[in-house]
Amino acid sequence: MNPLHLLAFGPTGWGDELAYGAAMTLVIAALGFAGGLVLGLPIAAARLSSNVVLRAISGVYVTVVRGVPELLVIYLLFFGGGQFYRYVADALGYSGAVAADAFSAGVLAVILICAAYSAEVFRGAFQAIPKGQIEAANAFGMTRSTLFCRIKLPQMLRYALPSIANVWQLVLKDTALVSVTGLVELMRTIDVAAGSTRSPFLFYMTAILIFLAFTAVSNKAFEGAERHFSRSVIGGYGK
């Protein structure tokens, strides 16, 4: 029998399961990425703040999360999550059952990791904004919020975009680690299929190809975005 039948859709093959797993991987990655970026921005702001306490806390956060294996972060949230919720429930006087589920632990882990890396990217991008442009905004009497929303944020995002593409790659790959919690995403589906069909070579090769496809597509998407946002740098259509 042709071993590729194992990848067919329908009851005979693993096609549907793999598609579901791949979709789950993308959902976790997308939620983790979005959450991580949203959380990364205030952390970057804290890193650049003049307040010593804010700077210290955010610095420690970034150093710790980036200095510890991602797998350990996932274990901590998955296995430790229940214990943590228990503390909170006890503190609130709630004695019913509490549990950390694999999905929320996985997404939270990816958010926390993504936040640390994107905070560093944002910090560098804020620092890359030419000082003169901020000075000019000040000279024209812009308020701090106008300065931030109209000048700093759009410029920062432009500088950050290439590195943010790298953070997305990292997030996508880290999502595979969530499989250790038993959550049925792509990697977990592959593990189960490889084990039950005794065809690990085929299935792990499939996993590699699917991840490569994700990488290729997201590379293209980010390239397009970069071209769009850097038009002002290159000189653009107004010439």
Partner: peptide, 23 residues
Amino acid sequence: VYVIRGTPLLAQVFFVYYGLGQL
């Protein structure tokens, strides 16, 4: 380089340990 950087280390570990061992 493209294949290695575009795929998770976990998939690579499993591929080498379980995948190659099947052949």
